[in-house]
Computed example of a mutant assay.
Amino acid sequence: GSAKGDWDVGITLDVIDAASRVDQVVLASGDGDFDLLLDRVIQRHGTEAVVYGVPGLTAMSLIRAATRYVPIDGPLLLKH
């Protein structure tokens, strides 16, 4: 698989493994592929799912799936 795919699988497995033992999952990503993961941990474990993502680069499906969305902008956004 691709490096991105392997990375996504690793993150997904870590979140699934931890979801029953934590109150909150924090994801710094804009990748809409994680929307189903957040849906599942919220529904199965009642875990809060907070997404930090850059406005305009964060999938709407991920924002909708999150319990709370925190835009990365202003002082949080690194500039080159």
Rank of each mutant, 00 (worst) to 15 (best):
H80R: 15
V51Y: 04
L77C: 05
I63V: 15
I16R: 10
A18G: 01
S61G: 11
S29T: 10
D6M: 12
R44M: 14
G30M: 09
T67M: 10
L62G: 04
V26C: 00
V70G: 01
P71S: 03
T58F: 02
A66N: 09
P55N: 11
Y69L: 07
A3C: 01
Q43M: 09
L37M: 01
L13P: 02
I16L: 15
L13T: 11
D73S: 14
A19R: 07
I11C: 05
I16W: 12
M60F: 05
G30C: 13
V9K: 12
G30E: 08
A3Q: 12
A59N: 14
V15W: 01
A18M: 04
A19F: 10
T58M: 07
L37S: 03
G56L: 09
V9W: 10
D14T: 13
H80Q: 12
V41T: 08
A66M: 12
Q43W: 13
P75K: 09
K79D: 06
G10L: 06
R21E: 15
D23S: 15
D39R: 15
P75W: 05
K79A: 05
S61E: 15
G46M: 11
T67G: 13
P71T: 04
D6F: 07
L76R: 15
Q43C: 08
A18P: 00
L37E: 05
R64V: 09
L13Y: 03
D33K: 00
S2R: 11
R21C: 03
A18H: 10
S20I: 07
R68I: 05
V15K: 01
V51C: 10
V50N: 06
D35E: 12
L36M: 04
V22W: 06
P71F: 07
T47P: 06
G32I: 03
D6G: 09
G46N: 09
G53P: 03
L37I: 03
P71W: 03
D23E: 14
A59H: 11
L37W: 03
P55Y: 02
V25D: 02
G30K: 09
I63W: 06
L37D: 01
D73V: 03
A59G: 12
V26P: 02
V51A: 08
D33R: 03
Y52Q: 07
A66T: 09
P55A: 04
G46Y: 07
V51F: 08
L13K: 13
G53I: 05
G5T: 13
H80L: 14
D23Q: 13
V70R: 13
Y52P: 02
L27R: 04
V22Y: 04
R68V: 11
A59R: 11
Q43P: 00
Y69C: 06
H80D: 14
A66W: 06
Y52T: 01
A3G: 00
L78M: 14
R64A: 12
V51L: 10
I11R: 00
G1H: 12
A3W: 02
S2D: 13
L62I: 08
V54I: 15
D33P: 01
G56E: 09
L38D: 02
R21F: 11
L37A: 01
D33N: 08
F34I: 02
R68D: 10
L13R: 14
G32A: 08
A65Q: 04
M60L: 11
I16G: 00
G46E: 05
D39V: 11
L13G: 00
L77V: 06
L78Q: 15
A59D: 15
A49H: 03
